[in-house]
Design a protein around this nucleic acid. Structure first.
Lengths: 198, 198
DNA sequence: AGCGCTCTAGAGCGATCGCTCCAGAGGGTG
DNA sequence: CACCCTCTGGAGCGATCGCTCTAGAGCGCT
């Protein structure tokens, strides 16, 4: 069994994915983590806010690693896009549309009510966009253009989670992935043409 | 002054946009609406859940009307896309990134915790997708393809709200709009070519 | 053994939650 | 005028919230 701190962290992330920040009670966290209440405040003296910040940062990092693993395994950037969107859709289906992004729900909840947590979510999104943009740029896409594309990819993933969970259907997520793959591939085709002709 | 029921409805929508479902207390609603607590339960005997369902449906309808007005005013579907995304970005900037989609935050919060409200949000999303898809189809895009494009548009709007609010910047919303305009226009160009050559 | 630090354990606090309940204002109808 | 029904007005209920507090278990060090 993992350490108490790690169990609290992962349990909180799990509950945030299902019911968000305000919908998750700390008693629920300790029950799921099988940890005493005192331990929670020992490891996170700042209470719910500090715990949430730690969860945002650590699960943001975990998702970024997932991005990178999928992209490394894919044969080209276009199929990396569909791999990722289809993978997210599959996880949604398998978990009864429960297991989604642990950042998204919290990000909307705290955007106008808690500046510390808002900033934490902003940093995670920025780091995701940055990661995806670097990959695109390494395939020859212009830097500014890469950032735009990466931003749309992240926005569409989050919106896809929202629509797919609401409809209890993997289609919104999958359809978004298909179209964005086309967009990325046509962008790369442009790059190749330009590179070839100059 | 509007009737009490309408004031409660619009006040709830306003609070949902900023702080979501779980983050909004009914006392806060009655204070903002300047309505007595008893009136809330007179007009919405089902309590918070019934009130939320009414807010979801009515503000979903309001946003759909906004979609249609912008598209009617635009010279072509491509500029309708950027008009809408730029308009949303401008509203965010003007309101201090407070005034966003009243459905989005609630949709994620209730997706796995309240089936009645989940279904209400799903119906609103479906109706938005349907509206946008009909417009695209009326310009010659194949029905199935229109639905895919419309789904991505709605997902990107919601994701754009999330990223822009977290970063307190209009750029994610604007960038998404610019790229999606290109996608829509290249789709329409394909349609024109096919129509012309056959 | 004796000491000290980290961490576990959970009772219980004040505040706030959604909600119930009832008294009465207001106005149309006979 | 008397009556009734819609709606206003707000006190206060039980439950639950985030959080504090204290007691002690476990372990390494001297």
């Amino acid at each position: 069994m993992l350490g108490t701190r790690e169990r609290i962290l992962t349990s909180t992330g799990e509950l945030f994915r299902r019911q968000g920040y305000n919908g998750t009670a700390l008693k629920q966290v300790t029950a799921l983590a099988d940890a005493p209440f005192g331990s929670l405040y020992h490891h996170f003296p700042g209470g719910k806010e500090e715990l949430a910040e730690a969860v945002i940062k650590s699960s943001g990092q975990a998702y970024q690693t997932l991005f990178e693993l999928i992209e490394d395994a894919a044969v080209d950037p276009g199929s990396a896009v569909t791999d990722f969107f289809d993978g997210a859709a599959a996880v949604l289906e398998q978990t009864g549309y429960v297991d989604a992004c642990p950042i998204g729900t919290v990000a909307l909840e705290v955007a106008s009510t808690n500046d510390r947590l808002r900033q934490a979510t902003a940093e995670v999104f920025a780091s995701w966009v940055d990661t995806a943009a670097r990959r695109l740029a390494s395939h020859g896409v212009a830097p500014a253009r890469s950032i735009e594309l990466a931003t749309l990819l992240v926005a569409a993933v989050e919106g896809g989670f929202m629509l797919s969970r609401a409809a209890r259907s993997p289609e919104p997520m999958r359809a978004s992935g298909r179209l964005l793959r086309e967009l990325v591939e046509s962008e790369l085709a442009t790059v190749r043409t330009v590179t070839t002709t100059t």
